[in-house]
């Protein structure tokens, strides 16, 4: 009977092995294990192994996927500044203008969601600071503020440089590439620093269930906003550069984003309902 457990990973066997064997013994009630039971256990054990492999991804891979959204945000800013400095071809003028308008609208909506998330959490945040919470979050906030200052500095440098279509000095391309790369990188790092700081602050705030649920929904809206802005930006980039490759990629990603966004929002709504229901049940 114990041999049935060999399909399961070692950690699982150590945690659940004995109780699982007790269940198998109770189920069989003295009979021999048939092939259906053996097959079912083997299948479940292999699924458990697969689950364990997925969970035990190396730390660098987990961190990389954690950076994904912030790298996209960084690329958004960098490419926007670059694309805004270029004149679109006459044939694609209205498409470029439409893409730019959609991008600006999405940025405004995403920004509004960020402001709203901050506004609903403001009163508990003030209470936390008055209760002497500043030393707990000081280090994270300071790093995020330093990142913001550095990003603003390189962004001003990039904006003050002659644009890609202007007359170029010797060494212009190196300086422009450096400013462009630094802006993208620093914005990605800074948004990540702010996200970490916000998560840390949130952990210490005494948020009412309704506020917690609202934060979940607004967080999903911000994430969906950024993920939709990326393909719109690629479309804009493709139109301005007259690149069919980037245009097709942007449109394909845009369709994928339209398909994924409702699921993200539905999941957030379900999570928010859980939070409200858990609070109601705990009272």
């Amino acid at each position: 009977m114990r041999r049935l457990l060999r399909w399961y990973p070692r950690a699982w066997r150590e945690r659940y092995g004995e109780e699982f064997l007790a269940l198998v013994e109770d189920t069989l009630d003295g009979r021999r294990a048939g092939w259906r039971l053996r097959l079912g256990v083997a299948w479940s054990g292999l699924r458990e192994r697969g689950h364990q492999v997925l969970r035990s991804r190396p730390a660098w891979k987990r961190n990389l996927s954690g950076w994904d959204l912030f790298v996209r945000a960084g690329c958004l800013l960098g490419v926007s500044v670059d694309t805004a400095g270029r004149r679109p071809p006459a044939a694609g003028a209205w498409q470029a203008a439409t893409a730019a308008t959609v991008l600006t609208t999405l940025a405004a909506v995403t920004g509004a969601a960020i402001v709203a998330a901050g506004a609903v959490a403001w009163p508990p945040f003030v209470r936390f600071l008055r209760a002497g919470g500043w030393p707990v979050i000081r280090r994270r906030i300071t790093w995020a503020a330093l990142g913001s200052a550095a990003t603003t500095g390189v962004l001003i440098w990039l904006l003050l440089m002659p644009g890609p279509t202007a007359a170029r000095q010797p060494g212009w391309l190196t300086a422009y590439t450096l400013a462009f790369g630094l802006t993208t990188l620093l914005f990605a790092i800074t948004t990540r620093l702010w996200a970490t700081a916000v998560r840390m602050v949130k952990k210490h705030l005494d948020l009412a269930p309704r506020i917690r649920a609202a934060e979940t929904l607004l967080g999903a809206a911000v994430s969906a906003g950024i993920l939709t802005m990326v393909p719109v930006e690629i479309v804009w980039f493709g139109v301005v550069r007259s690149s069919a490759f980037w245009l097709a990629n942007g449109l394909a990603l845009l369709v994928a984003s339209f398909l994924a966004t409702p699921r993200t929002l539905r999941r957030a709504r379900r999570r928010a309902r859980w939070q409200l229901a858990a609070a109601a049940g705990g009272r």
Partner: peptide, 9 residues
Amino acid sequence: GPGALYGAI
């Protein structure tokens, strides 16, 4: 079955 039950648990 035991496998499905403990997978869900």
